[in-house]
């Protein structure tokens, strides 16, 4: 009898997890690919994330933010991967004072010409800690609170890092504009 209850609970857990996690599959994969910048690594990352998340699903508090929770797992998995370790070695003290945005807006020119690839290349060129915060905010449209949960950092750090990421993106676009 105890066993049957256990099996029922396991199945319920797996079904609940699947119901919560699979709708996020495309987003997680996209995010993973942006982080890893490699299809195979991204797949490994997502696969491992789902397996870890299911395994640790009992630790997830119902009513809290599942999306932030599973993104945090993915991000931590990435950070401990070879690519992640390499990408974060150069992580600098990014939590300094917020920098004002420059007066130039070269991105406007790119946008007008619909040059997606320039923008994608610029995002790719960002250090991973800028790239991830930018993608979570702009692509996943997460709130600062969600981003803070997903990245396990304070909201103030989210804001400053986001500001620096945007500035770095503008600079990157500007450089590409000059080169082109």
């Amino acid at each position: 009898m105890v066993y049957l209850i256990q099996v029922a609970e396991e199945r319920l857990t797996a079904a609940t997890f699947e119901g919560l996690a699979m709708p996020l599959f495309d987003q997680l994969y996209n995010f993973a690919h942006w982080l890893a910048q490699d299809r195979t690594e991204a797949e490994d990352l997502v696969q491992e994330t789902y397996v870890k998340a299911l395994k640790g699903f009992s630790s997830f508090q119902p009513g809290t933010n599942f999306r932030a929770w599973i993104y945090r797992i993915l991000r931590n998995t990435f950070l401990t991967s070879r690519t992640g370790l390499k990408a974060t070695v150069a992580l600098d003290a990014d939590d300094g004072p917020e920098l004002p945005a420059g007066p130039e807006t070269p991105e406007t020119i790119f946008i007008e010409h619909s040059q997606h690839q320039f923008l994608q290349a610029a995002i790719e060129s960002l250090p991973v800690h800028f790239r991830e915060v930018l993608l979570l905010c702009e692509v996943e449209e997460m709130s600062y609170q969600e981003i803070a949960e997903a990245l396990s950092i304070p909201i103030g750090t989210v804001m400053s890092r986001l500001s620096r990421a945007r500035k770095a993106l503008r600079e990157s676009l500007q450089q590409k504009l000059v080169r082109s």
Binding site: Y29, H33, R39, Q120, L134, V139
Partner: peptide, 8 residues
């Protein structure tokens, strides 16, 4: 960025 970010 939102549009470009939906890449993969």
């Amino acid at each position: 960025v939102h549009s470009a970010g939906l890449r993969y």
